[in-house]
Design a protein around this nucleic acid. Structure first.
Lengths: 142, 142
DNA sequence: AATTAAAATTAAAATCATTCTAAATAAATG
DNA sequence: CATTTATTTAGAATGATTTTAATTTTAATT
């Protein structure tokens, strides 16, 4: 599994980020967990293997990764910022029952009606509803 | 201007909300200010005319309005929740220079690739970039 | 109209995510 | 090796939002 590790390091370097132990750990976590985790989840999951880790470092690292374009922050959840290492265009869906956040194939939004001269640099589409799993359970429980 | 007021009251009632002075004021503010204001802005702007107003009431009222579907909360701004009385589908654009949030005609997102059984109830699309005004100023300053 | 009950509003305290600060550690450079 | 610079860290500070408990307003009932 050192191919992953070197790929992570490369990705950091490509974005102008010096690959420290902590930064590698955070980015690797995001790459291997497409669950759009919160800062807290990332911290708790990494803490056992890096017992000196500070939550401030997770915050710092994520801010840096976002600034450099290495990962995306998504605001689909009003309570906590969530992070996504997949930077190719796609939408997100959040289930209001279980809270899971899923990826959806992107239909690039057509930004009609913006004043001439507006420059759109990025976009995020968030969908809300109930996931298939939770709908399945509802039927079963009946 | 009492046509507006009665329209606001009706809209509250239609959504099962008892139209108190404060609730009318908050909804009327949102209807007449399509600026996607924050709680703080709403409070500061209403305070002079309702000097007994509490920020908690603004929070309570907005939460109620959102729960009842009378207004939308948008999370285009990571720092503060923003509110929008226009509930017909449209997208939002935020300028990273001046912070303005503008409406954009909606292209309904096509949610491909979601597992069979998923129910999408609503969606929000946020676009980020630089608005026409700010781009104009950049050219002039050069 | 007075009394009571229920709902809404309020100010202040509590909470919680995030940022800041200043010290400690690690890495890079002369 | 010494020194500067960058990174990490723990804890304090901040700021948005929620909670609490008291007060006021509204509605219902006598």
């Amino acid at each position: 599994m050192d191919k992953l590790r070197s790929h992570i390091q490369q990705r950091l370097t490509e974005h102008g980020i010096k690959p420290s132990l902590q930064r590698i750990a955070v980015l690797e976590y995001l790459v291997t967990h497409a669950t759009h985790p919160t800062v807290d989840t990332i911290f708790s999951d990494l803490y056992p293997s890096i017992p000196t880790l500070s939550k401030a470092t997770v915050y710092n690292t994520l801010k840096l990764l976002v600034q450099c374009g290495a990962v995306n922050m998504i605001t689909i959840d009003e309570k906590n910022a969530r992070y996504d290492a997949c930077t190719t265009p796609h939408m997100h869906f959040r289930c209001r029952k279980c809270g899971a956040i899923l990826d959806i194939e992107q239909e690039l939004p057509v930004t009609l009606g913006l004043p001439r001269g507006t420059v759109v640099e990025s976009s995020q589409t968030y969908c809300y509803g109930v996931c298939a799993e939770c709908n399945k359970q509802d039927i079963t429980l009946h």
